[in-house]
Computed example of a mutant assay.
Amino acid sequence: MAKSGPHLLLERACPTPVCGVDEAGRGPMAGPVSAAAVILDPHRRLPKGLNDSKKLTAAQREDLEFEIKARAIAFAVGFASVEEIAQLNILHAAGLAMRRAVEALSVQPVYALVDGNYRFALPCEVKTVVGGDGVCASIAAASILAKVARDRVMVELDGQFPGYGFAIHKGYGVPGHLKAVRELGPCEIHRLSWAPLRALLETPA
């Protein structure tokens, strides 16, 4: 029976080197989308508390980021810009960020375990894993690195585009963000292709 929570069973069953891949930032209405690729040692103990990034606090993610980078055989993060999201759509922009992350690994994998059910074109064989960030250790690790990296970018962008609260909500469509867009209008890192944002801008105040 498979162990509950993230484990290394899938990594041990795949040709090596095998990386886990996940993205962060498909849902926000502002900012880039990020992805990370992580190659873990399938015979080394996992960092304590490793889990899907969405089930962790920001402090827990930052602590685990340090542990993952210290223990991983290789890791890398890739991004796709707001402009690329508009050109490609968010799904394929996420795939572009994934490909950039895999290509940036210092050790090139022969196999990738990718969260979700969409088979992105990566420079190696791909196996999709629905809910992978909750059951596959290397995907969970990738989810954490992708989330932490994107959050840091959004904090930096908050300094460049003050008033929207990017450091707080990281670009998601929370009420305070929607209110700021109504008052200030969109800025250059808003995803104008995002349907709820278009609807907001088209609705009279």
Rank of each mutant, 00 (worst) to 15 (best):
G165D: 07
A142G: 09
L50I: 08
V135M: 11
E23Y: 12
G25Y: 03
S34C: 15
Q87T: 10
G31D: 05
R45A: 15
L200A: 12
K170Q: 08
V153R: 13
V18A: 14
S106M: 13
A137C: 04
L56P: 05
R119I: 08
N117R: 13
A36T: 11
L96Q: 04
K127P: 03
L122C: 11
G163E: 09
E65P: 03
A30L: 11
S81H: 12
G134K: 00
E202T: 13
G5A: 05
D133G: 00
M154Y: 05
K55D: 10
V181F: 01
R198C: 10
A140T: 00
Q87K: 14
E188F: 03
A205N: 13
K3H: 13
H7I: 02
K147Y: 03
I90K: 00
E11L: 01
F166W: 09
I139Y: 00
H92Y: 14
A142Y: 00
P42C: 10
L184H: 12
D63R: 15
A104N: 13
A180Q: 01
L46E: 01
H169A: 10
K54W: 06
P109Y: 11
H7V: 09
I168C: 14
G20H: 08
A74M: 09
A167Q: 10
L56T: 02
A104M: 11
C14D: 08
E125I: 12
N117F: 12
A205L: 13
R44D: 13
P42E: 07
P17H: 07
P175W: 05
P196V: 11
G176H: 10
A142R: 07
L200Q: 08
A141V: 02
I73F: 04
C187P: 06
M1V: 15
E23F: 03
N117T: 13
A80I: 10
V126W: 03
V174R: 11
G132N: 02
E103A: 14
F75N: 12
A2R: 15
V129C: 10
I168M: 15
L56Q: 01
A37W: 01
D52G: 04
V153L: 12
Y111D: 07
I85V: 11
R198F: 12
E156C: 08
E11P: 02
R119V: 15
T128C: 15
A13I: 04
A180M: 05
L91F: 11
V155C: 10
